[in-house]
């Protein structure tokens, strides 16, 4: 394997290790939330420090790679994408930490009825699925699948947009649950962010594999529709 490929692989491996850590944080956050498991939530929060170390390490690896190998074309795009993927992974890790922090603040589990009404569990599962799909796409370089991930984000946005009304209605009927309601709204917002950040990662994969920029694309409405 050419030297440049060895170094690129080392960078990719480091990124995948970080990916696993963040996936553990995100999936663990779901477990902690559903089971009101404060011990697990605290463990996930502690893992944040490890993720931060990965963040710094990967940034440094990218910097060295650019300085020493003067990458061009696909190599250049891959190292630029790695920088941004790293950044997004770190932020998803932060968000997962935030979700766990909410769990530690809850005095009792969120009522199932409320989780169902706001579609929070469905949202969490979708966010997790999108996240693990980007990892697969990163390895397979299948950009057609990456584009599918972009579409899935719509569901998260939709659930988020409807959540305030659903929550308000529920809280009017159960004013004693106001604190839980605020925590839950915060959590839904965080899941919506996970969707956005996961989408960013999928976009970076499309950028480096296909040399196409798909960020900030607004669909033009067809005339007459």
């Amino acid at each position: 394997m050419p030297h440049i490929d060895v170094e690129m692989k080392a960078l990719q491996d480091k990124l995948l290790e970080m990916w696993d850590l963040v996936e553990y944080q995100l999936a663990g956050g779901r477990e902690a939330l559903l089971n009101q498991d404060v011990v697990l939530a605290e463990k996930i929060m502690k893992l944040g420090r490890k993720v931060n170390r990965y963040d710094i390490k990967i940034d440094r690896q990218c910097e060295n790679f650019i300085a020493l190998f003067n990458p061009l074309a696909v190599d250049l795009r891959q190292v630029l994408a790695s920088l941004k993927i790293n950044n997004n992974l770190e932020r998803i890790g932060d968000t997962a930490e935030g979700i766990s922090r909410i769990v530690t603040k809850l005095k009792e589990p969120i009522p199932q009825e409320l989780l169902d009404a706001t579609r929070t569990s469905e949202m969490y599962e979708k966010a997790l699925f999108m996240f693990s799909s980007t990892r697969k796409v990163f390895l397979s370089s299948n950009t057609a699948e990456a584009r599918l991930i972009l579409k899935q984000d719509k569901l998260l946005n939709k659930i988020y947009r409807q959540s305030d009304k659903v929550l308000a209605k529920y809280l009017r009927e159960h004013p004693e649950q106001i604190e839980v309601g605020l925590h839950l709204y915060n959590l839904i917002k965080k899941l919506e962010r996970v969707g956005d950040q996961t989408t960013n990662i999928a976009e970076e994969i499309i950028f480096y594999r296909d040399a196409k920029v798909v960020r900030h694309r607004v669909k033009k409405k067809k005339k007459g529709s």
């Binding site: 440049i4 061009l72 074309a73 250049l76 795009r77």
Partner: peptide, 15 residues
């Protein structure tokens, strides 16, 4: 240098 269209170009410039 960022997105060559021919594979031969890409292979050459990336060594």
């Amino acid at each position: 240098f960022t997105s060559p269209s021919d594979t031969r170009t890409q292979n050459y410039i990336t060594g």
